[in-house]
């Protein structure tokens, strides 16, 4: 079992999904479900290569909730921002596509970053090429890469670096 970490992470994800969906803590259910989970994890963990980017350190206990909180606040801000733009009769938009550099290497990390960017105020990921993200920005404040990176992705990237590679 060379990809042991992938196996563990896969097992945790599947187990959490199953537990939340069934919501049962009956002894028999847990026994049957648990063995089924381990069987599934043994059969399929080799396809879960994706999870190798997940870091397992004591720090994540703090950074996962922090990321969630930052993300939810940004999501709320995004919605109020878009709602205000939509109801404003003048439709104040200033759109454009800008490039953003990221230092994250792994596909999973980039996926999480791109998803977070899509759900935050006025930005939508259009394309990802290597370490460059192309982002549609509803209200362009900086055209060059540095200022766009600072305004859009730096907030998430700081926290994401602690969670994934």
């Amino acid at each position: 079992m060379k990809n042991f970490k992938g196996f563990i992470v896969f097992l945790i994800v599947v187990a959490l999904t199953w537990l939340l969906l069934t919501g049962t803590f009956n002894k028999d259910d847990l026994l049957i479900g648990g063995s089924a989970l381990i069987l599934i994890a043994i059969l399929f963990y080799r396809y879960s290569d994706l999870y190798r980017a997940v870091k397992i350190t004591p720090k994540i206990v703090f950074y996962y909730p922090l990321y969630l909180v930052v993300f939810l606040i940004e999501l709320l801000k995004a919605n109020i921002d878009v709602a205000l733009r939509v109801v404003n009769p003048a439709l104040p938009i200033n759109p454009g596509i800008v490039a953003v550099k990221t230092s994250l290497k792994d596909p999973l990390s980039k996926l999480i970053l791109a998803n977070s960017i899509t759900l935050t105020p006025g930005t939508l990921t259009v394309d990802v090429k290597d370490d460059t993200l192309f982002i549609h920005w509803i209200d362009v404040k900086g055209k060059d890469i540095e200022s766009a990176t600072k305004a859009i992705s730096s907030k998430f990237e700081k926290i994401l670096k602690e969670i994934v590679k």
């Binding site: 709320l76 919605n79 878009v82 709602a83 939509v86 109801v87 439709l91 759109p95 596509i97 939508l124």
Partner: peptide, 22 residues
């Protein structure tokens, strides 16, 4: 409403994604 009012695909997607998610 945003999907109706926005001028192009990308802006419509912006309104669509965020508002429908929350």
């Amino acid at each position: 409403l945003g999907i109706f009012r926005m001028p192009d695909v990308y802006n419509r997607l912006q309104a669509g994604t965020k508002a429908t998610t929350l």
